[in-house]
C-alpha cells in the first residue's frame, strides 16, 4: 500500500504539474455541460439523464487521452527502467499510476456537480437516479481507464497509446449496442448476445442511469477493469523475457 501511495502521489502531481491537466478538465466540463445544456431547456425535464447518457461515447475519447501518458511517457523518457528496477512489484507501480489517473478523472467529474445543484433548484429531480448515475460514471471511467492504462503499456508512443485506447474503448461500447449484437448473432447465433452481456457496457450502464445499482452490473465493471489491469501487469512482467 505504501508503494502504491508513493507512486500515486508522484503520478497525481505529474498531472497537475503541467497545464495539460487544466486544459483537459476545462475541455471536459465545457464540452459535457455544453452538450447537456443544449438540450436541457428543450427537454424541459429536471434530471441528468442526458448528461450521463452522453458519457459512454464522450469518454471513449477523453479517457484514453488521460491515460495515454501513464506508461508510454515513462518508456519514452527512460523512467520506465527506474520504475521497473524499484524494489516493488510491477503491480504496485501499475496501481499507483492507475489510481492517480482515476483520481484525476474524479476531479474532472466533480466539476459537473454544479449541474446537480442547478437541476435541484430548477425542479424536483430523482436524486437517487442522479447518485446512481454518478456511480455509473465513476465505474465507466474506471473501466475505460483500465483499458487506457493497458494500451499505454503496449507502446512508447503516446499517440499510438491514445488511438489504441480509443479503439478498445469503442469496441467495448459498440458491443453493447443492440443492433451490433443482433448483427453478430446473425453471423454466429448467440455470440452477439454473449458479447453484449459480458463485454458490452450499455446494458449495465443504462441500469444505473435508471437508478438501479445491481450486483451483476457492479461485477461487470469491476471484473472487466480488473481484467485489463491484470493484463497490464502481466505485460509488464512478461516484457523482460
Amino acid at each position: 500500500m505504501r508503494n502504491v501511495m508513493t507512486v500515486f502521489k508522484r503520478e497525481y502531481a505529474a498531472y497537475f504539474n503541467s497545464p495539460i491537466a487544466y486544459i483537459f478538465i476545462i475541455a471536459f466540463l465545457v464540452l459535457n455541460s455544453g452538450l447537456f445544456m443544449t438540450g436541457f431547456f428543450l427537454n424541459g425535464t429536471a434530471d441528468l439523464r442526458a448528461f450521463f447518457g452522453n458519457l459512454p461515447f464522450f469518454l471513449i475519447f477523453f479517457i484514453p487521452a488521460v491515460s495515454m501518458r501513464l506508461w508510454a511517457e515513462d518508456k519514452r523518457t527512460g523512467t520506465f527502467e527506474l520504475l521497473m528496477t524499484l524494489p516493488m512489484p510491477a503491480r504496485d507501480v501499475m496501481l499507483g499510476k492507475y489510481l492517480a489517473a482515476l483520481a484525476f478523472y474524479l476531479v474532472a467529474l466533480a466539476g459537473t456537480l454544479p449541474l446537480v445543484i442547478m437541476v435541484a433548484v430548477l425542479g424536483n429531480p430523482d436524486m437517487g437516479a442522479i447518485w446512481s448515475g454518478y456511480i455509473g460514471s465513476i465505474l465507466l471511467g474506471a473501466l475505460y481507464l483500465g483499458i487506457g492504462t493497458f494500451t499505454s503499456g503496449l507502446t512508447r508512443d503516446q499517440i499510438s497509446a491514445v488511438i489504441l485506447g480509443i479503439m478498445a474503448c469503442f469496441l467495448v461500447f459498440i458491443l453493447g449496442v443492440g443492433g451490433v449484437a443482433a448483427t453478430i448473432d446473425g453471423w454466429l447465433p448467440g455470440l452477439g448476445s454473449f458479447l453484449q452481456n459480458y463485454v458490452g457496457l450499455s446494458g449495465h450502464y443504462d441500469m444505473m442511469l435508471r437508478g438501479v445499482v445491481a450486483l451483476g452490473d457492479l461485477a461487470y465493471f469491476l471484473g472487466l477493469t480488473a481484467l485489463f489491469l491484470t493484463l497490464n501487469t502481466l505485460w509488464l512482467e512478461g516484457r523482460k523475457y
Binding site: 508513493t6 504539474n17 523518457t77 527512460g78 523512467t79 527502467e81 527506474l82 516493488m88
Partner: peptide, 25 residues
C-alpha cells in the same frame, strides 16, 4: 542503478525527485 538513459522526471525538482525515489525504496 543508473541506467544509460538517465531516468529523470523533468516536471519535478531535484528534491521532489530524490524524495520520490527514496520513498519508493
Amino acid at each position: 542503478y543508473l541506467p544509460e538513459n538517465v531516468p529523470l522526471y523533468p516536471d519535478m525538482n531535484v528534491e521532489e525527485y530524490l524524495s520520490f525515489v527514496g520513498q519508493a525504496r
